[in-house]
Nucleic acid binder design. Structure first.
Lengths: 120, 120
DNA sequence: CCATCGTATCATCATGCACTGATATATTAT
DNA sequence: ATAATATATCAGTGCATGATGATACGATGG
């Protein structure tokens, strides 16, 4: 996939918006959900099983991902089928893994910030 | 740049690590710093001028980016020259802009989470 | 040596996030 | 209708983060 800078027709200083996207990806639970969804659409219950998250927690993260346009929801009766909205999101995830594969050590030892408050 | 999934030789469930990388990118101040650095290496003072951040704040974010391997530091006398460590990081930024260019509306209206605590 | 400049660190504080448990809503089944 | 299932929402809590101002460190210059 070609990624040229000129394609980004975004206001040059809209860092708040970009930050929001990255913060949407910056949570292990949401990454777990997205990883599970890469193998195809899943219902909330299946996501709960796949990720080990509690149902309200998963539902909340899904709402977050949905609001941000990272996933798509399709209602089937009383089930809700979620899927990744944009292939480029998956590409971002791959690219991140690509970077981490060579500089994971640095990120690993980065003690400057950690995961946010988790009771678990 | 080719981004294949097989290249990502990362532990499949290391979402905490991935999340850390994205959280590193998930802050407007740090994105501003990275954006400034895309035009070439800068000293801390130049970064302060370019971003409008306070000096301690910029220094702290730079330490964060440095620890995480996203930027590189080179000492020149009493100056510190920072530069982007990995071109693929810039690619991630471009790709994110690419995604946002088409689904920015969703992210914009995402009220589920906001920027972290800023007094300003 | 002392002052100055550039950078890094410290102490402190406030806000927002991610989690839990309980409950509400909605849809199908008996 | 009633129950059961699937999902969404609400109230409340702890913790990490990002900010500030003061200060320490380190290097150059007079």
């Amino acid at each position: 996939m070609a990624v040229s800078r000129s394609l980004a027709t975004l206001h040059p200083a809209n860092h708040a918006l970009r930050a929001k996207l990255f913060r949407g990806l910056g949570d292990p639970s949401r990454l777990g959900i997205l990883a599970a969804l890469r193998d195809g659409p899943l219902t909330v219950g299946e996501i709960v099983d796949a990720t080990g998250l509690s149902q309200p927690n998963a539902s909340n993260h899904l709402a977050c991902l949905l609001d941000c346009g990272l996933v798509r929801r399709e209602r089937h009766g009383r089930f809700a089928s979620y899927s990744i909205a944009d292939d480029r999101v998956a590409t971002i995830l791959d690219l991140a893994d690509n970077v981490l594969a060579t500089s994971a050590s640095g990120v690993l030892t980065c003690s400057r910030y950690a995961e946010p408050g988790r009771t678990t």
